[in-house]
């Protein structure tokens, strides 16, 4: 009983299972679509255009873009999964059940963000496997690769969770990923090294936080990076902690959850 009071694992598991079951139910939307989209990127950028591109830091272009493409899907899907998980109960009104359950805020976050991150990580790995059919891939630091994958998926799922709490309509829910995250990702070195940019743009690019995430992840594959891996790791952890702070504030104040 005391264990139950300290940590409500049944509640966490119930939410986690519920969210994973939804992903399974909407398999086409959650897994198949992103995998097909990414495959098309490889066909276009990897095979069609990539064959005419020079190597970047000794890595063939097709292989160079793999970490960036995984990140592109990881960002958008983590945000989508994290935001939809909490927004949907708000939208249909079933949030009353969550708020009246004997579950702590931390447990709610673990369950929703855990499920969202799990889905994104599975997707990231599926994209990696898909990419391996198109281009040769090396992973020089698999431990770091997994660490970046898990940390970034969790951070963006957390960010999505914040978005889901904040959003008061589907339009708001899609606005941030479409208008901010996707452009930042495209401009953050998914398809190129920021060293390839002319001088002022290279400096400007360093203000884009996504650069640090993609750079760190790419380093774990090929040991080539736009910024030092320590800085990438610190930036990822910093973003993670910032999201945690916002989430703890949301639950402390009940922002858009409780009146």
């Amino acid at each position: 009983m005391s264990e139950w009071i300290a940590f409500n694992r049944h509640s966490i598991w119930a939410i986690y299972k519920f969210e994973m079951a939804r992903a399974w139910r909407t398999l086409t939307q959650s897994i198949v679509t992103p995998v097909i989209t990414t495959s098309l990127y490889f066909v276009v950028f990897g095979s069609a255009i990539g064959s005419r591109m020079k190597e970047i830091d000794g890595v063939p272009y097709g292989a160079f873009i793999v970490p960036g493409l995984i990140m592109l899907s990881l960002f958008t899907q983590s945000i989508f999964n994290g935001s939809f998980g909490i927004y949907f109960p708000k939208f249909v009104g079933t949030i009353y059940e969550l708020l009246s359950a004997p579950i702590s805020y931390l447990e709610i976050v673990i369950a929703y963000v855990g499920a969202a991150a799990t889905k994104s990580i599975i997707l990231g790995l599926l994209i990696l496997i898909t990419a391996s059919f198109f281009v040769p891939i090396k992973i020089l630091h698999p431990g770091f690769m997994i660490a970046f994958l898990v940390l970034i998926a969790t951070t963006f799922s957390l960010f999505g969770f914040i978005l889901g709490v904040w959003a008061q309509g589907f339009e708001q829910l899609q606005m941030i990923p479409m208008l901010i995250i996707t452009p930042l990702t495209f401009l953050g070195g998914s398809f190129y090294s920021i060293d390839m940019l002319p001088a002022p743009w290279r400096t400007i690019a360093l203000f884009n936080p996504v650069v640090y995430l993609i750079s760190g992840f790419r380093w774990s594959f090929y040991e080539t990076a736009d910024v030092a891996v320590e800085i990438s790791l610190a930036a990822t952890l910093g973003f993670f902690l910032a999201c945690l702070l916002v989430v703890s504030w949301i639950f402390k104040t009940g922002y858009r959850l409780k009146s």
Partner: peptide, 11 residues
């Protein structure tokens, strides 16, 4: 599913 979910949610 919804009934068993509620049971789990309440620990």
């Amino acid at each position: 599913a919804t009934t068993t979910f509620s049971r789990g949610l309440f620990g």
